[in-house]
Design a protein around this nucleic acid. Structure first.
Lengths: 193, 193
DNA sequence: TGAAATTAGCGTCAAATGACCTCTTTTTGA
DNA sequence: TCAAAAAGAGGTCATTTGACGCTAATTTCA
């Protein structure tokens, strides 16, 4: 499990073997069952999380109890609630497993130490954060401007591999449309093809 | 004009006087007229921008030509298109002045130099970026989940000072609702009070 | 394996929304 | 200062959307 993570670092960064092992050595593995929570709204996000296998979702609840999904995190990606983690304050969002899977956890103290000791890790983390910002912007623009049709098309274009792994109601919760509307969009696409 | 910026840094950071003057020395002032563009979609964002006075907006265009506003930037805030600036690639968004105003510009080369030389500036910049991420998250959740009523209430709660400075059509373009719907929401609020 | 839970899909209906239009008032900039 | 442009407000109407209820198929997990 940690091997998989070390391979990821080898492929995605130019970190040397010693540093990679140092990072892996501080990771704590954890298995997740379907629907198990990694973080609940109101708790403090105490770990940085790398997903080795499985699929997580980050979502917020509205007062009426409905879920809205901010992010899906499949294998070989990272997740956390940034504000809660950075400032160690209660989180506004929850993170739970859509599929069973395995993750690696680092405490903030440990990871901050690694960032200080390994400049290349810091630069890599910065790149990940940047990419997140860019895609978040695009996502906001789509949420503001696109029709349900367009939102669904964008989703398929950006995340084709997730389509078959997610129940439609979660895709609807991610796009900010009702399941009914999503079904209508899909129906219309079938007719057109 | 640069004095105002230096005061801002004095208030918001613990940078010392020498560093503050060093940062100010590399700034290039520019005046903006109403509706003047600072960045056009397709251009590369070559500067970091601090707004001394006035009000800017960052927006994206949809294929049908309608504008959707990602961000308002009033005095004493910063703006740029992060992806275009970081990677020096054509921007997906435009930035223009809602009100006439004054801004300070730093080229990426100059600002990168300052970040290297002044660790406290780097840490301050990091804080600003973080805050931007947090509020972007919240904004996305609102865009996905809230009714037009709630979106407008959130806007008033988060940015009361902008309400009187913006034409309603821009508020509508920021909230992702039509001007008609915004008017209906406002009408309903008048009746309720 | 088999019962229970979840999911996909559809019909109906009421409500919300946006497109298009007009009219008046306010603001802008030459 | 004054003509032109922009903004605010509202009316009508067609369309889109979501809420609710139902059934059948699929998946989950004890």
């Amino acid at each position: 499990m940690i091997i998989a993570f070390e391979n990821y670092l080898r492929l995605q960064t130019d970190l040397n073997g010693a540093d990679i092992r140092r990072i892996g050595a501080l990771a704590v593995p954890r298995k997740l069952r379907r629907n198990e929570f990694l973080l609940r709204e109101g708790e403090v996000c105490r770990h940085k999380v790398f997903i080795v296998s499985g699929l997580l979702r980050t979502f917020g609840l509205t007062p009426d109890g409905s879920e809205h999904i901010l992010q899906f995190s499949p294998e070989n990606t990272w997740t956390l609630d940034a504000e809660s983690y950075d400032r160690q304050i209660p989180s506004h969002y929850s993170i739970s497993a859509v599929e069973p899977g395995e993750v690696l956890l680092w405490t903030k103290a440990d990871f901050d130490g690694l960032l200080e000791e390994i400049p290349q890790l810091k630069s890599f983390a910065g790149q990940l954060i940047s990419r997140n910002i860019y895609s978040g912007r695009q996502r906001l623009l789509t949420a503001l401007s696109a029709t349900p049709e367009k939102k669904y098309e964008d989703f398929i274009k950006n995340s084709p591999e997730l389509l078959s792994r997610l129940p439609l109601r979660m895709i609807a919760a991610y796009l900010g449309i009702s399941l009914k509307t999503l079904n209508r969009v899909r129906q219309a696409q079938l007719l057109r093809s």
